[in-house]
């Protein structure tokens, strides 16, 4: 329990550190939100109007004041409003975060369903035809950038065969079938490299587990091959796979940009990118804070799972 509380405290400190770094860096980075807003579409902005807008947006106050105001808001659970359209940051996150999470989970699910069995099989039949073909495919999957794969998928399924919509989003409640149809391609795109990663990691750690003495013991007990495989090989190989998977899931939180862009999936990466482009400080900081908070949460869950999977780490 003390361990848990300490972890939570560490998480909070980390999240605060992240928000501070981002807040300060953003103000150092060139680009003025007021000028940018008034320059949308490559139109020259009137410097006097820019100045007025800066005053209106509270950007003329000392940065320390701005930071204090922001911190005060965070404590009250208010992340402020967008500089662009005064839209509440929390509202935007509440709308978008579930979609990004859904996308990541769907992608991870596909990746695990493909990568885990394939990696195990390839390790068991190392050097065989399947191993070679899938290892090659994994390299291919890792190599082709997601925006190329996305474009090709859209070109094939939407533009040529016209069996899939060319990206977009429909709420599940509105049309479940269409929702899942629209989820398919971006989830596949997410799973593209993730499944290759899971495959490689599984293959490596199953190979490693296979050579362990306890597998020999399990066989010496006369266990069936399936049982040896599941209980003594795959079970032990899971820990490193989980480490990598957790790492990637965390990274994906803010890293679905290209997929969201290519398939027009309205997740949280797009507003983040757009907010950075527009130097929409409260939106950027708010989203980053959410992402890092979630990331730390995933970490915590991973550590707990880790402890569940590998009792040795529990001791310390």
């Amino acid at each position: 329990m003390r361990w848990f509380l300490r972890r939570i405290a560490t998480c909070l400190v980390l999240a605060w550190a992240v928000s501070l770094v981002v807040f300060m860096t953003l103000h150092v980075v060139p680009g003025d939100p007021a000028e940018l807003l008034l320059s949308t579409g490559g139109i020259a902005a009137d410097p006097i109007a820019v100045k007025e807008l800066r005053v209106k947006l509270g950007l003329e106050r000392p940065i320390f004041d701005q930071y204090l105001a922001f911190l005060g808001g965070v404590i009250r659970g208010d992340l402020g409003t967008s500089l662009v359209d005064e839209y509440p940051v929390t509202k935007e996150i509440a709308l978008r975060l579930p979609r990004t999470l859904e996308l990541i989970l769907a992608g991870t699910l596909i990746a695990v369903l493909l990568g885990l069995p394939a990696g195990t099989y390839a390790a068991l039949h190392r050097g065989g035809l399947f191993d070679r073909i899938v290892s090659g495919t994994a390299a291919l999957l890792l190599a082709i950038p997601v925006f190329v794969v996305g474009t090709l998928l859209v070109l094939l399924l939407a533009q040529t065969l016209k069996v899939m919509p060319a990206g977009g989003y429909v709420p599940f409640a509105q049309d479940p079938v269409k929702h899942l149809t629209l989820l398919t391609l971006p989830a596949i795109a997410i799973a593209k490299s993730l499944s290759a990663v899971v495959f490689r990691m599984t293959r490596a750690s199953v190979l490693d587990a296979l050579s362990r003495d306890f597998v020999r013991t399990a066989r010496a007990k006369g266990l069936s091959p399936t049982r040896v495989l599941l209980r003594h090989v795959v079970r032990n190989a899971l820990t490193p796979v989980l480490t990598v998977l957790g790492l990637h899931m965390g990274t994906l939180l803010g890293g679905t940009v290209l997929v969201e862009y290519v398939f027009n999936w309205p997740g949280m990466s797009t507003p983040l990118l757009r907010a950075v482009e527009a130097r929409d400080y409260p939106m950027v900081v708010g989203i980053v804070l959410t992402i890092s908070g979630l990331f730390l949460l995933i970490n915590l869950i991973m550590d707990l799972l880790y402890a569940a999977l590998d009792p040795r780490t529990r001791a310390a």
Binding site: A158, Q159, A166, G168, Y261, V262, N264, T270
Partner: peptide
């Protein structure tokens, strides 16, 4: 109005009938 930031996808949406 639906926003398609990616020009390729915007065109794909037109061609696919979206």
């Amino acid at each position: 109005f639906v926003v398609y930031a990616d020009e390729n996808l915007r065109f794909a949406a037109l061609q696919s009938g979206d």
